[in-house]
Design a protein around this nucleic acid. Structure first.
Length: 878
RNA sequence: GCGGGCGUGGCGGAAUGGUAGACGCGACAGACUCAAAAUCUGUUUUCGCAAGGAGUGCCGGUUCGAGUCCGGCCGCCCGUACCA
């Protein structure tokens, strides 16, 4: 066996897998199936270490499950629509299509050398007409089911990208991609009725046992269920048509603490008033101005304007409350109007204090006397309080009980009704962009909005477009835009909005089960392959992508494209951490930071200092160590001292990136794969270090050398310690198996180091050594499949290592005949003894008490108690 | 503010309530070498020559026994927010 040359063997084995179609997913009713999916990439043009980590994790699971005898589906595709392609076209010319498919080809070329066990025959891009045509078909089906609608809506308008953003895409008042301050505009938009499923999307979270608790919580908070009372105030002095104002409250138990009512600046009453009253118009304009930027949100003070209108308290018509327009009341939550209870709401308190409104307390801490409040008293709803202005239930009760009693009482009196509210809004999917899935509808002067006929699908994007003017090229493309009505044949006009790219990624997992079908899915394939057994991706998709996918699976079931069992499409979810790297920074003459690529700096360890300098500087003479500073001063610009900023997410602007291609070139894919799986637990960030990568390569070289040594052993070599080798191997099988099952890849790798070290020191018989290293190859195969194949073949393994059944540990080898038991005295470890594993506790006790060290420690003191945990520990209490 | 997570050697991190620090990095020493690199063999929580102490952010509790469970602090990270 020659030297370890990853390049040679990796290309060789990848070709062997290809020609054997090792990873082709086959529907095999005789086998259990396993569907592993990693979140598919956006084709930005280059793969990064995050991709390597994500796809290696999925690959470890896929290869392991295949070895366990599952029929595995492990596909790959491209989330290929979206703005960057258009931006590239605007900046550099060219066409989004060419840019996208060029990037896909480039990234596929970079991904293949990783040796992932992917069924590439199922590959597709969401911008393939074959894919988005089926998406259009489903859109039409969803229209028929009433899951799609159009409405005028105030939307978040991104002035840079010139498009509408969903609420989910607005972060701190800024566009999630452009980072530009979002404006408000009113447009007619297409929506998916995700809110129909609010209650179910929330309650079904409980069933997702194999999802991270964190993700379930984030989704639950996003859906935002609340229970409260909706009721109407009667008004006095209001314009015609506004004799009632509906309000929603989650604290109806505090109704007798009401001191004002407030409506949103976007409330219909406010809009009516502003048309007739310039002072109101000025005020509402003021409210709308702020409130988008991050600082404005932080510093926003509560402002209000008394409309002069009064409402009557529902319990007492003689009590009148003023109606304010207030900037902190949101139109799109509840009814856009509130009643203010300053005593028990911090926000209302601030408002009432500012405008001199009364602050009557409704309840007090248990046992307290009524005193003037200097801040709002807002106890937990689970806390018991003393009601002094209650109207339902006991005087002493918890907030929860009081709310329930208040709702019941109000319903009985006919004042309002209990309502469950959700924060989740319908999903606005219209985008005024070119590079997306066209919404397949036609606007006809006679028939109105009509769905395109399915036989005319896909509604393909036109190729002849330009991006020299901002806005949507589809809008100014007459031959594409003009069409005939599918209903009446009259001249009509195509919808020019395209779909949010989150729609594309909301069902790709289902499409992988039948990627080239002429319907969105095929029942038999979906039945066999769904659900995704293990989904792997970044935590950044905890809310949007995963919530939309959960909705879409339900919609696909409702429209007959997925079986009922697939409405929760992802059985298990794993969210992996990022790959981080140090940042190397110097400062230029103007004091501005300058960042340097990892390959452009050199680090040394000198005494207890770590020195990092620019350029490829040879390490200092050991004699200089005494005077490092003098040595440093002797360096020119080339060797300037570099500031090292620890562990940050890899980012091009900070130049702390390591190109996976360079690593594969230098050390091979197996090294890259092993390194990203070692050290850190997969859910945490992993720091990429050059020394770690090198150490990995050295380790794989050692394994290679070990394989070579075993291969050179004479067939009749007897050696010693075969039993120990068999035990160490069985132990490793057990540990690696359990670790992979629990996603503890770092621990699996630790166990593999352990077995390698044992074998390197062992001198067993040729037979025992060969068996052990073949097992080692199999255990390494999910992580480092190429070197595993070479070892497997070299040591006489049959067929491909990738298709060999996963090794099983002989349980007899996992238990030792003798065990070492530590002896504690009063909980402190003082000695240890070695005893046969099934020695009765009474015997163990005797031996322990007779132990020399124990006798010495006891010093004759009487033993109060002795605890023997079989096979574990002995504790003597004195 | 609210919700969640996490605090263990120089570093990344192990540890079903049962020998704290597996495994890796780094460092140190030795072998090989004219020398260096590579490789191999050791050592490496800390105080102590040793015997023996101490030790998992801090304080307290439960337990024969606590990194692990409970209560209270401190610190860091993530998510989220005028949600009535």
């Amino acid at each position: 066996m020659s030297r370890y040359e990853p390049k040679t063997i990796e290309a060789k084995w990848q070709a062997a897998w290809d020609s054997a179609e090792t990873f082709k997913a086959r529907r095999d009713p005789s086998k259990p199936k396993y569907y592993v999916l990693e979140m598919f990439p956006y084709p930005s043009g280059r793969i990064h270490m995050g991709h390597v980590r994500n796809y290696t994790m999925g690959d470890v699971v896929a290869r392991y499950k295949a070895a366990q005898g599952f029929s595995v589906l492990h596909p790959m595709g491209w989330d290929a629509f979206g703005m960057p392609a258009e931006n590239a076209a605007m900046e550099r010319g060219g066409h989004p299509k060419e840019w996208t498919y060029g990037n896909i080809a480039e990234m596929r070329k970079q991904m293949k050398p990783l040796g992932l066990s992917i069924d590439w025959s199922r590959e597709f891009a969401t911008c393939d007409p074959e894919y988005y045509g089926q998406q259009q078909a489903m859109f039409i089906d969803m229209m028929a089911k009433g899951l799609v609608y159009r409405k005028n809506a105030v939307v978040n308008w991104d002035p840079v990208d010139m498009t509408v953003l969903a609420n989910e895409q607005v972060i701190d008042g800024k566009g999630w991609r452009s980072n530009a301050a979002v404006e408000r505009r009113e447009l007619t938009q297409w929506f998916f009725k995700i809110s129909d499923y609010s209650a179910e999307l929330l309650s079904a979270l409980d069933g997702l046992k194999d999802w991270p608790e964190k993700v379930r919580l984030m989704q639950a908070n996003w859906i935002g269920q609340s229970r409260g009372l909706q009721f109407a105030f009667s008004t006095t002095g209001a314009p015609d048509g506004f004799d009632r104002i509906e309000v929603y409250t989650t604290r109806p138990d505090t109704l007798l603490g009401a001191s004002f009512a407030a409506i949103s600046p976007d409330h219909p009453l406010a809009k009516h008033l502003e048309r007739h009253d310039s002072a109101v118009a000025a005020f509402t304009a003021e409210c709308r101005k702020g409130g988008t930027t991050a600082e404005a949100m932080e510093t926003a003070t509560k402002i209000g304007m008394d409309t002069g209108i009064r409402v009557l308290h529902p319990f007492d018509n003689t009590v009148e409350l003023p109606v304010y327009i207030a900037n902190f009341v949101l139109m799109d939550y509840g009814t856009g109007a509130i009643f203010g209870c300053p005593a028990h709401d911090a926000r209302d308190f601030e408002f009432a204090t500012k405008y001199g409104l009364p602050i009557p307390a409704v309840f007090l801490p248990e046992g307290a006397e009524e005193v003037a409040l200097d801040e709002a008293y807002v106890p937990m709803k689970s806390e018991r309080v003393q009601y002094i202005r209650g109207f339902a239930g006991n005087d002493l009760q918890t907030g929860e009980d009081a709310v329930a009693a208040a709702i019941a009482e109000c319903e009985a009196r006919g004042i309002g009704r209990g309502v469950t509210n959700y924060r989740l809004r319908d999903w606005g999917i219209s985008r005024q962009r070119y590079w997306g899935c066209p919404i397949p509808v036609i606007h006809c002067a006679v028939c109105g909005v009509v769905a395109e006929k399915k036989e005319n699908l896909p509604v393909k994007l036109p190729d002849d477009v330009t991006f020299d003017i901002p806005g949507n090229p589809l809008d100014r493309h007459p031959t594409w835009r003009n069409c005939t009505c599918p209903n009446c044949g009259a001249d009509a006009r195509r919808e020019t909005d395209t779909m949010d790219t989150f729609v594309d990624s909301s069902w790709y997992y289902a499409r992988f089960t039948a990627p080239h079908a002429t319907t969105p899915t095929i029942a038999e394939d979906a039945d066999y392959w769904m659900n995704v057994d293990q989904y792997i991706g970044g935590i950044e998709h905890a809310i949007l992508h995963l919530l939309y996918s959960r909705f879409f699976a339900r919609a696909m079931h409702a429209t007959g494209h997925l079986p009922a069992k697939a409405i929760e499409p992802f059985n298990a979810l794993f969210t992996q951490g990022m790959v981080t790297h140090e940042i190397y920074k110097t400062t230029d003459a103007n004091g501005r930071p300058v960042y340097h690529l990892p390959e452009d700096v050199t680090s040394f360890s000198l005494a207890d200092r770590r020195i990092t300098v620019l350029g490829d500087v040879p390490p200092p003479d050991p004699d200089m160590i005494a005077d490092i500073d003098a040595w440093l001063q002797g360096l020119n610009d080339e060797g300037a001292l570099v500031e090292v900023i620890p562990s940050a997410k890899m980012s091009k602007s900070k130049k702390n990136v390591v190109d996976p291609m360079n690593i594969i070139e230098a050390f091979g894919a197996d090294t890259a794969r092993w390194f990203v799986m070692s050290d850190s637990p997969p859910e945490r960030d992993v720091e990429w270090t050059a020394s770690g990568a090198e150490a990995t390569f050295k380790h794989l070289s050692r394994v290679w050398a070990l394989c070579s040594r075993i291969g050179d052993m004479p067939a009749d070599h007897q050696g010693v310690g075969d039993q120990d080798i068999a035990k160490a191997t069985a132990r490793a099988v057990e540990d690696v198996t359990r670790s992979i099952e629990t996603f503890a890849f770092n621990k699996a790798i630790a166990a593999l180091y352990g077995l390698t070290n044992t074998l390197a020191k062992a001198n067993g018989s040729t037979h025992a050594m060969k068996h052990a290293i073949r097992t080692l190859a199999q255990l390494m195969c999910p992580m480092t499949p190429h070197i595993a194949e070479s070892i497997w073949t070299y040591q006489g393994g049959a067929g491909l290592c990738a298709t060999a059944p996963w090794p099983k540990a002989d349980p007899a080898l996992l238990v030792d005949d003798t065990v070492t038991l530590p002896i504690q005295i009063n909980g402190k470890r003082r000695a240890e003894i070695s005893v046969p594993k099934d020695m009765p506790a009474s015997e163990v006790e005797k031996i322990a008490l007779a132990d020399e060290a124990v006798v010495k420690f006891l010093a004759g003191a009487p033993v109060k108690k002795i605890i023997v945990v079989p096979g574990r520990i002995i504790n003597v209490v004195i």
